[in-house]
């Protein structure tokens, strides 16, 4: 590696960290359309993957990652307004009572030898807090692993494929049991159950994956995929964090 290549690689890694930081802050604000426009590749084969599969393509991403979020926010707000008429259903009130941050830790970033792409992995210790229709708020721990392909467009690094594998989700302040729903022996709470069903209905209305598949779980510990980024020459389908690896 020449001195120039060494310095370029260090600079690229710093810039890639910044791109991911921008993602985290956009995501915390629910500002997903701006995120897609500003820090994602202009290519048509961008993708989002998670435990359930891949959402592929630019229009799909606008529908799933940007617009569906607003639909979800509006539906949630309507439920809250139903329980509390003082709440006005308008765009400015979307995400009322929401607070989320998927922090970025443990960066492992490899820039391809050809300098055109990069692969990164982060571990996110995150929290997702929402107010529910009953006016109560609840916070959830959300621990996830990110694996991301980046591509250089002009002078800028852009997100190409984004994979999120969720390892742990549980209510803050409560023990993790690996199971959802009320704790064994808990008193039945019809209102909580109704709210849960309403929220599930909203989630189920989100666009389904373009390629549904069980990509990730941690029921047997650390999942084999996605692989750790390792030094590489050039991007190939075999090492992609996008769907091409599975097609």
């Amino acid at each position: 590696m020449t001195d120039y290549e060494a310095l370029q690689s260090a600079y690229d890694i710093y810039m890639i960290k910044n791109v991911m930081g921008r993602h985290a802050y956009h995501h915390a604000l629910g500002d997903h359309r701006a995120e897609l426009d500003e820090i994602w590749s202009q290519r048509d084969d961008i993708s989002w993957g998670n435990n359930m599969g891949f959402w592929v393509g630019r229009e799909t991403m606008y529908n799933y990652y940007a617009d569906a979020k607003e639909v979800q926010d509006e539906a949630t707000l309507k439920l809250m307004a139903k329980a509390n008429p003082k709440i006005e259903v308008k765009k400015e009130n979307f995400q009322l009572g929401a607070l989320l941050m998927h922090s970025l830790t443990t960066p492992l970033i490899q820039v391809a030898n050809d300098g055109k792409t990069a692969q990164g992995m982060w571990y996110s210790l995150g929290q997702v807090t929402n107010a529910g229709p009953d006016g109560k708020a609840s916070g959830q721990w959300m621990h996830e692993r990110y694996a991301v392909d980046f591509i250089k467009e002009g002078e800028d690094w852009k997100i190409w494929h984004f994979f999120v594998g969720t390892d742990l989700g549980c209510e803050a302040g409560k023990p993790f049991t690996g199971k959802f729903g009320p704790a064994p022996g808990a008193e039945p709470d019809p209102q909580a159950e109704e709210n849960r069903k309403a929220m599930m209905a909203i989630m189920e209305a989100l666009p389904k994956p373009t390629i549904p598949m069980e990509l990730y779980h941690c029921k047997y510990g650390w999942h084999n995929e996605p692989h750790f980024p390792r030094p590489y020459a050039t991007h190939t389908a075999e090492i992609s964090y996008g769907p091409e690896k599975y097609l």
């Binding site: 590696m1 001195d3 120039y4 060494a6 310095l7 690689s9 260090a10 890694i13 710093y14 970033i109």
Partner: peptide, 9 residues
């Protein structure tokens, strides 16, 4: 100096 800078990441 290039080596030291590149070494941090």
């Amino acid at each position: 100096e290039a080596h030291r800078i590149a070494s941090i990441p």
